[in-house]
Amino acid sequence: MSLSKDQVQHIATLARLTIAEEEMDDVVGKLSRIVDFVDQLQAAPTENVVPMAHPLNTCQRLRADAVTEGNERDRIQANASAVHDGLYLVPKVLD
């Protein structure tokens, strides 16, 4: 296994995912296979190659920093599970 259980647990924490104990072996096995598979990239000669940041090798367009959307708070918040007076509710963050 190229990844350990601890490494996978760490990745899951970074990704804000929980892995049930009974799924752990399967997840470690499959992720290790993927990492082994993409490891073949290491052998490619890429000295002096510029990383591709845009699929057409061009720059991103800029726009003015201006408000373009109307206020649709109620429509948008209709999709949230917990709102109150136009605010999103989350568990208490500070004691």
Partner: peptide, 14 residues
């Protein structure tokens, strides 16, 4: 090792 290298190989493929 992974992401940057992949973006370089992507350039080669392109």
């Amino acid at each position: 090792a992974y992401y940057l290298q992949a973006q370089k190989v992507r350039q080669l493929i392109s």
